[in-house]
Measured scan of single mutants.
Amino acid sequence: MAAGGDHGSPDSYRSPLASRYASPEMCFVFSDRYKFRTWRQLWLWLAEAEQTLGLPITDEQIQEMKSNLENIDFKMAAEEEKRLRHDVMAHVHTFGHCCPKAAGIIHLGATSCYVGDNTDLIILRNALDLLLPKLARVISRLADFAKERASLPTLGFTHFQPAQLTTVGKRCCLWIQDLCMDLQNLKRVRDDLRFRGVKGTTGTQASFLQLFEGDDHKVEQLDKMVTEKAGFKRAFIITGQTYTRKVDIEVLSVLASLGASVHKICTDIRLLANLKEMEEPFEKQQIGSSAMPYKRNPMRSERCCSLARHLMTLVMDPLQTASVQWFERTLDDSANRRICLAEAFLTADTILNTLQNISEGLVVYPKVIERRIRQELPFMATENIIMAMVKAGGSRQDCHEKIRVLSQQAASVVKQEGGDNDLIERIQVDAYFSPIHSQLDHLLDPSSFTGRASQQVQRFLEEEVYPLLKPYESVMKVKAELCL
């Protein structure tokens, strides 16, 4: 049975990233139509530049190519590739079939990587351009969430054990800070992308030097003109047959890092959902379990974690691919890159769409948070109580021993009897502590235990987050809708 299948058929496997999760716009960027249309555009740009620099290419040939950029006979191309065992030459023939007058000058002087690699770089750039505003929107939604809850005390956790208090907004800023680093890295790697350009079979530009009869300047002009037509500021000066596969490492490393950030955020949300302090959106008709109707599973956060793990592992592909590119190139890269580049971007696209949807509907339960604080705060307040007693004339050592005994009794009630923490009640009825009984409410005010959390939130948002989001103001209103 021949390899390949009808990918629109229910009898043929289709990647869930495309069929179930990723956005239509990201799927289109990695589609065959987008790819092969870009090949034709690159052939047109090459012909236009070659004509401008004096090669015998007519206006009629150029116009014929322009008129057929979208006229792609995919069936013919597939048949040609089956016959020739070469995808680029299959599309040269297919393009030439609908451009008979231009057929002889299509791909003039070029090698397969002229269309293959340059198209990949265009796709990487455009895919990054799709991700950047999506990530900015996630940051914006979380920034709104953090600002609104900047002063809401909550129990902090280290080692997932109760620690000092923080605020809900401050905790959210930990998430935002990681995503801001990801946004900066995505922008950097996007701006650092260079075009492969017009380089020939081993990167020496020998074929173009021959076409222009040894004119170095025209060869350099050709490279520059096509690079500018493709919208790049610069091209690699040095290439082998391909652009260095280190570029793929750079791009997928940034995406993998984004995956790590999203995994951490969504894990926190899942843990908070278990504590009943916070939940992701839950639709009115949504079913959490087929057997347990009360369940409210954090399905979206779980999906993000599941896909983020996949995204983090994909960076190993370009690392290994770059390491086995012998001399000017081997074909070890080809099949692998067809999979890992598309999957990385479709996965990143999915987790950003999902995280935006989550961040637009996060639900906080202040009463649950308050109750958990009441359970733990008495123990945390013991040092403040000791200091207040010393100020009232008591002995630190005597007070410490009193607190120690009462704390152990209260802990026994919590752990052995399943009761509430009654340390404060014990202190309130103990005559030894009568000098500070009137101060206990103040000493137990949760806001006095959150330090500068709310001020940190305000400063972080104003100095770091809002300036970073400013270039994306025009796209901030787009909502994230999930079908599944």
Score class of each variant (00 low, 15 high):
residue 387 M to A: 10
residue 438 S to I: 15
residue 366 P to Q: 12
residue 76 M to N: 11
residue 12 S to G: 13
residue 308 A to D: 12
residue 125 R to T: 13
residue 11 D to K: 14
residue 439 Q to H: 14
residue 245 R to Y: 07
residue 94 T to R: 02
residue 51 Q to W: 09
residue 208 F to C: 11
residue 248 D to Q: 11
residue 449 F to W: 09
residue 305 C to M: 11
residue 341 L to F: 07
residue 337 R to L: 10
residue 61 Q to P: 14
residue 476 M to I: 02
residue 375 Q to R: 10
residue 244 T to Y: 13
residue 53 L to T: 03
residue 179 L to Q: 09
residue 174 L to F: 14
residue 377 L to M: 12
residue 116 G to A: 05
residue 388 A to W: 06
residue 225 M to C: 01
residue 209 L to E: 06
residue 263 H to Q: 13
residue 421 N to V: 11
residue 138 V to F: 15
residue 61 Q to C: 13
residue 270 R to V: 09
residue 147 K to F: 01
residue 214 G to Q: 07
residue 222 L to P: 14
residue 416 Q to F: 14
residue 267 T to V: 00
residue 276 K to F: 14
residue 275 L to P: 10
residue 221 Q to T: 05
residue 379 F to I: 12
residue 262 V to Y: 00
residue 392 A to V: 15
residue 23 S to F: 08
residue 6 D to Q: 10
residue 289 S to H: 00
residue 199 K to W: 07
residue 234 R to N: 09
residue 352 L to I: 13
residue 8 G to A: 12
residue 346 L to R: 11
residue 196 R to P: 10
residue 255 L to T: 14
residue 232 F to N: 01
residue 58 T to K: 08
residue 42 L to R: 08
residue 193 L to E: 08
residue 325 Q to P: 03
residue 55 L to N: 09
residue 357 N to V: 02
residue 53 L to Q: 02
residue 158 T to R: 09
residue 328 E to P: 10
residue 392 A to K: 00
residue 379 F to C: 14
residue 227 T to L: 04
residue 93 H to C: 11
residue 479 K to S: 02
residue 208 F to E: 09
residue 398 D to C: 14
residue 257 S to F: 11
residue 424 I to A: 05
residue 91 H to C: 07
residue 119 T to H: 05
residue 193 L to M: 08
residue 313 T to R: 06
residue 481 E to T: 13
residue 113 C to V: 09
residue 383 E to S: 11
residue 188 R to M: 05
residue 375 Q to W: 05
residue 29 V to L: 11
residue 402 K to H: 11
residue 191 D to T: 14
residue 74 F to Q: 00
residue 78 A to P: 10
residue 388 A to R: 05
residue 367 K to C: 10
residue 199 K to I: 08
residue 165 L to V: 04
residue 270 R to S: 01
residue 359 S to D: 00
residue 405 V to I: 04
residue 481 E to L: 13
residue 134 K to M: 00
residue 319 L to E: 10
residue 443 L to W: 15
residue 478 V to E: 07
residue 414 V to W: 12
residue 199 K to T: 04
residue 168 V to L: 12
residue 138 V to S: 07
residue 213 E to G: 10
residue 390 V to C: 02
residue 294 Y to T: 09
residue 439 Q to L: 12
residue 343 E to V: 05
residue 60 E to F: 08
residue 33 R to L: 09
residue 261 S to I: 03
residue 195 F to W: 05
residue 358 I to T: 08
residue 8 G to M: 15
residue 272 L to W: 09
residue 456 Q to R: 07
residue 280 E to H: 08
residue 53 L to V: 07
residue 249 I to V: 09
residue 125 R to N: 14
residue 317 D to V: 07
residue 357 N to S: 12
residue 475 V to F: 08
residue 356 Q to P: 07
residue 249 I to A: 04
residue 257 S to W: 10
residue 6 D to A: 13
residue 33 R to N: 06
residue 211 L to E: 07
residue 287 I to L: 06
residue 246 K to W: 02
residue 273 A to V: 10
residue 433 F to L: 10
residue 68 N to Q: 14
residue 201 T to I: 07
residue 415 K to Y: 08
residue 395 S to F: 02
residue 483 C to S: 13
residue 310 H to D: 05
residue 335 A to N: 08
residue 32 D to V: 09
residue 328 E to T: 14
residue 483 C to G: 12
residue 230 A to F: 14
residue 90 A to S: 15
residue 380 M to G: 06
residue 427 I to C: 14
residue 161 Q to K: 00
residue 326 W to K: 02
residue 349 D to W: 12
residue 328 E to D: 09
residue 162 P to T: 07
residue 119 T to W: 01
residue 415 K to D: 15
residue 104 G to R: 08
residue 39 W to I: 04
residue 142 L to A: 03
residue 215 D to M: 15
residue 11 D to A: 15
residue 285 Q to K: 13
residue 422 D to I: 11
residue 172 C to M: 09
residue 35 K to E: 06
residue 71 N to I: 08
residue 234 R to M: 15
residue 419 G to V: 15
residue 379 F to S: 10
residue 62 I to R: 04
residue 248 D to V: 13
residue 216 D to Y: 08
residue 394 G to Q: 04
residue 278 M to Q: 00
residue 205 Q to D: 07
residue 341 L to N: 12
residue 184 Q to V: 09
residue 110 A to H: 08
residue 258 L to I: 05
residue 451 G to F: 05
residue 134 K to N: 14
residue 26 M to A: 00
residue 18 A to T: 14
residue 172 C to N: 00
residue 395 S to P: 03
residue 452 R to K: 08
residue 103 A to S: 08
residue 329 R to K: 08
residue 118 N to E: 05
residue 383 E to R: 10
residue 258 L to C: 09
residue 344 A to G: 11
residue 271 L to Q: 01
residue 11 D to L: 07
residue 358 I to P: 08
residue 237 I to A: 12
residue 410 A to Q: 15
residue 106 I to V: 08
residue 393 G to E: 09
residue 29 V to M: 15
residue 229 K to N: 07
residue 458 Q to T: 13
residue 313 T to E: 08
residue 36 F to W: 09
residue 261 S to A: 09
residue 89 M to E: 10
residue 252 L to V: 10
residue 301 S to L: 02
residue 80 E to A: 14
residue 358 I to A: 13
residue 297 N to L: 14
residue 473 E to D: 15
residue 291 A to S: 13
residue 88 V to P: 03
residue 386 I to A: 01
residue 195 F to M: 10
residue 207 S to C: 01
residue 302 E to A: 12
residue 30 F to V: 09
residue 463 E to G: 09
residue 444 L to K: 13
residue 230 A to N: 13
residue 469 L to R: 04
residue 105 I to M: 15
residue 130 L to V: 07
residue 113 C to Q: 15
residue 83 R to Q: 08
residue 198 V to A: 03
residue 206 A to I: 13
residue 473 E to S: 15
residue 248 D to Y: 15
residue 54 G to A: 06
residue 375 Q to S: 11
residue 357 N to P: 15
residue 425 E to N: 14
residue 302 E to G: 13
residue 339 I to H: 12
residue 195 F to G: 10
residue 327 F to D: 09
residue 36 F to T: 07
residue 64 E to W: 06
residue 297 N to E: 05
residue 351 I to Q: 07
residue 296 R to A: 11
residue 197 G to V: 01
residue 419 G to D: 09
residue 15 S to G: 05
residue 406 L to K: 12
residue 401 E to R: 05
residue 382 T to Q: 13
residue 140 S to C: 08
residue 115 V to G: 06
residue 472 Y to P: 08
residue 234 R to E: 15
residue 69 L to V: 03
residue 302 E to R: 15
residue 182 D to A: 01
residue 223 D to K: 00
residue 394 G to C: 09
residue 95 F to D: 07
residue 278 M to H: 12
residue 38 T to M: 05
residue 443 L to A: 13
residue 476 M to H: 14
residue 234 R to Q: 00
residue 252 L to W: 13
residue 374 R to P: 14
residue 87 D to L: 04
residue 199 K to L: 02
residue 447 S to C: 12
residue 167 T to F: 01
residue 268 D to A: 00
residue 378 P to W: 10
residue 154 T to E: 03
residue 385 I to P: 09
residue 302 E to N: 00
residue 37 R to P: 11
residue 262 V to C: 13
residue 2 A to V: 05
residue 130 L to Y: 13
residue 44 L to I: 10
residue 204 T to Y: 10
